[in-house]
């Protein structure tokens, strides 16, 4: 019972961390009263190259999360066998 709960927590963890990141992003956005937030200004500096970096990072993180999930599935199958 307890173990199941922990397992469930483990499953929720990435979702929670994503939510935290989104919250930070929202806070960064909310701070902007006149003009743009400092986060937005950074993103727009140097010809908005940081937008490309953010896009590249999103893809890599997304694929890594997916691969970790796949890896866990394979380990589970191996354990069952």
């Amino acid at each position: 019972m307890e173990r199941k709960k922990i397992d469930r927590m483990k499953k929720i963890k990435p979702l929670l961390s994503l939510l935290v990141v989104l919250l930070f992003a929202a806070v960064a956005q909310a701070q902007n009263v006149a003009g743009e937030s400092s986060f937005g200004q950074t993103m727009r500096s140097n010809g908005r190259i940081y937008v490309v970096i953010a896009v590249m990072t999103t893809i890599l993180v997304g694929l890594f999360l997916y691969l970790i999930r796949l890896d866990k599935k394979v380990s589970k199958l191996e354990k069952e066998a």
Partner: peptide
């Protein structure tokens, strides 16, 4: 677009 047009190699490729 400025430098963000480089996203062609990432966003569009997806």
């Amino acid at each position: 677009l400025e430098e963000t047009s480089r996203n062609l190699f990432f966003h569009v490729a997806m």
